[in-house]
Nucleic acid binder design. Structure first.
Length: 420
RNA sequence: GUGGGUAUAGCUCAGUGGCAGAGCGCCGGACUGUGGCUCCGGAAGUCGCGGGUUCGAACCCCGUUACCCACCCCA
């Protein structure tokens, strides 16, 4: 056997229905909020993420599936969606081509990480982005959309966390304030935190080591170091969220791992899905479009992990509700006739199955039962001679003979009746 | 990259040195043209892989791989 690649998974019948539900619910919702779908390639230039996601991030430093192709280009499988969507926005001048540049994407992402619950090497995200609107009302609208998505999927125990990480004007001062407040205490933090202090001090807030918490609790908060413009913006976002009645918590410890975030950041956490409990995360990235060579346009969006949404969704009924028809045949002449009937049923828009190998009528009926067939259409020598089909109601047990010419319409009526 | 756990039939698992097992599922029969319930029978295994100890290893030892969980990171 040749097994699947580590950290990748087949999504099989029984589970795929949950994925289809996520897709259907989110597409419907995104379109209600005015978004249009965009599909971008899975491979991109490595440079796009080095510049976009950020050279200092773990994603770029050690998690990308990057390689040199036969033409000598540095290529990578995309580790996240936002830089690709920014690239598409710039490359196709979407701000002029679209009446309103609000786009969404659904697809696989790749990161070379150690797999665990809710974390895979090929995983799937749905991602939305809005370009060119700096008004805080849009921040709140995007958060509202995220919250609505989680709600429509029936995910209970979800928690919305919001923060502001400032902008290039005020964030450096906050970083310095952090390091100054830490002072000598840096040496008493865990090894990871000491490393973070050098690379990205804000990430110290992510630490879960119990011994570090007293020190971290004493550190300054980013919201207290915002410039006037960022402070006003965040206050307006909070006002809108309050107006929408969305329950949220402001956490100064919400610092996201991607370099491009500015001002508003948010996450939705789910309970009971393991340690990887962030099912959705996003924020504003006002400098990214320009950073990637486009016009100076702001942006905001979020990404949700489909695997994690599916984990967090309540267990639906396992029954998919399909009640097909089953054609059973006895003898070679009847089999020929049954094949034609099978095709006619399908042409008429009905789901129909048949046992292709010449098994006993008993095992054919067994198969019909397993398929949860609503009706079995039985064809034997008797039926053939009389020009009829025996139609057995698998639920009630009754059986009636219907003429071959009328049986397709008869079945269509039966199935339509059963769906009421 | 680090740590812990696990690996036996399609699935879930029992078996701790002496014949490879159960439940569910699958196939067939009881019922020769009728499913579900019941009963009977059957098929199905590289006991993850490699080495070692032993008269004898699914079981003990060493190594290795994969999976799961956690750290890290993040959706």
């Amino acid at each position: 056997m040749i097994p699947a690649i580590r950290g990748t998974h087949d999504i099989l019948p029984g589970e795929v229905e949950r994925w289809q539900r996520v897709e259907a619910v989110s597409r419907r919702l995104f379109e209600r909020y005015g978004y249009a779908e965009v599909r971008t390639p899975i491979i991109e230039r490595e440079e796009l993420f080095a510049k976009g996601t950020g050279e200092t991030t773990d994603i770029v430093q050690k998690e990308m599936y990057a390689f040199t192709d036969k033409g000598g280009e540095r290529i990578t499988l995309r580790p996240e969606a936002t830089p690709s969507l920014v690239r598409a926005f710039v490359e196709h001048s979407l701000e002029q081509a679209m009446a309103s540049p609000k786009i969404y994407l659904f697809g696989p992402m790749f990161r070379y990480e150690r797999p665990q619950k809710g974390r895979y090497r090929q995983f799937h995200q749905l991602d939305v982005e809005v370009f060119g609107v700096s008004d805080p009302a849009v921040d709140a609208e995007v958060v509202d959309l995220a919250w609505a998505l989680v709600g429509e999927l029936g995910i209970a125990n979800a928690e919305l966390v919001v923060n502001s990480v400032g902008c290039p004007a005020c964030r450096p001062a906050f970083g310095e304030a952090l390091l100054k407040a830490l002072g000598e205490d840096v040496t008493r933090l865990c090894g990871d935190c000491q490393r973070r202090a050098g690379v990205n001090p804000l990430r110290i807030f992510d630490c879960k080591v119990p011994q570090d918490q007293p020190i971290i609790d004493g550190l300054p908060h980013s919201v207290d170091y915002l410039c006037d413009a960022c402070r006003d913006h965040f206050a307006a976002v909070e006002r809108h969220l309050g107006m929408y009645g969305i329950p949220y918590r402001v956490s100064h410890r919400l610092v996201r791992g991607l370099d491009y975030y500015t001002r508003t950041t948010f996450e939705i956490l789910a309970g009971n899905i393991g340690a990887q409990n962030a099912i959705l995360g996003g924020g504003r990235y006002d400098g990214l479009v320009k950073q990637l060579g486009g016009p100076d346009r702001v942006g905001i969006g979020f990404a949700a992990g489909i695997e994690r949404l599916v984990l967090a969704m309540p267990d639906g009924a396992r029954d998919d509700g399909r009640r097909p028809l089953f054609v059973a045949a006895m003898g070679e002449p009847a089999r020929e006739s049954a094949l034609a009937l099978l095709r006619d049923l399908r042409r008429a828009g009905l789901e129909a199955h048949m046992e292709y190998e010449g098994r006993s009528i008993k095992s054919q009926m067994k198969r019909a039962d397993r398929l949860k067939a609503a009706f079995a259409l039985i064809l034997g020598d008797d039926e053939l001679a009389a020009g009829v089909v025996s139609v057995k109601d698998m639920t009630k047990g009754g059986q009636a003979r219907v003429s071959r010419d009328a049986v397709v319409n008869h079945c269509r009526a039966l199935v339509a009746g059963g769906q009421e």
